[in-house]
Amino acid sequence: MKRKRLALDEDAVVRRALRELPSPARRLFLRRALTLGGLSLLSGCTLVDEESAERVLIEVSRFNDEVQAWLFDPNRLAPTYPESMITRPFPFNAYYDRDEVPEVDAEPYRLEIGGLVADRHAWTLPELRRLPQTDQVTRHICVEGWSAIGKWGGVRFSDFLKRVGADLTAKYVGFSCLDDYSTSIDMATALHPQTLLALSYDGRTLPPEYGFPMKLRIPTKLGFKNPKHIAAIFVTNVYPGGYWEDRGYNWFSGS
């Protein structure tokens, strides 16, 4: 597994560097925004100081995190659907192309657990599959606006967190992934009854394009908050951020 990951990294670094070139860096997006169209036409010049506009927007985004945490009802379930409504084929979506999906060997795979937990032993896939499993058909809503219905099965994440003796009063659960993705969620959402450590998709082993060996499936959050190819899970009180969150997407991103 270690070797696999290194091999992946060498190529991935180059590919990511190439990808980053045309894509706007975090501090660039508003600079572009404010020179565009409507607002600058109105004033005939730069409307507001760009740095402070960005600061205000980020502040409001933090405020929106709090509003969403307040709106979030731990007992309110996302709607579930009959299997006949599953979107086929379910769309592939990631920050890389389909041919760059990491291939993970099942046998040497270990899920690492860290941070504020009592039991830090790394989990094999057979161990995880022996835990009680549940499945559900829910709607995946992408930050881009599209949505698709899919069926995920696996271990209820709240059961798993309790089993590893996680500090359930901690603020965040963070994820780092084999595709060099990362994200983090609030503890309330981690403990939501529909949040699953998903090991299967549509009744079969989770395929590589949907996140083999596992993804976190959260029907109460946008798609990018559902990490795939999870390598490590950690419980913390220090804000961990995430791949898209660090680039300006709203952190809570509930749905």
Binding site: L28, F29, L30, R32, A33, L36, G38, E144
Partner: peptide
Amino acid sequence: ITLGGWLAGALL
């Protein structure tokens, strides 16, 4: 004629 530069900026 849009505002935000890219999706994340527009959402903000």
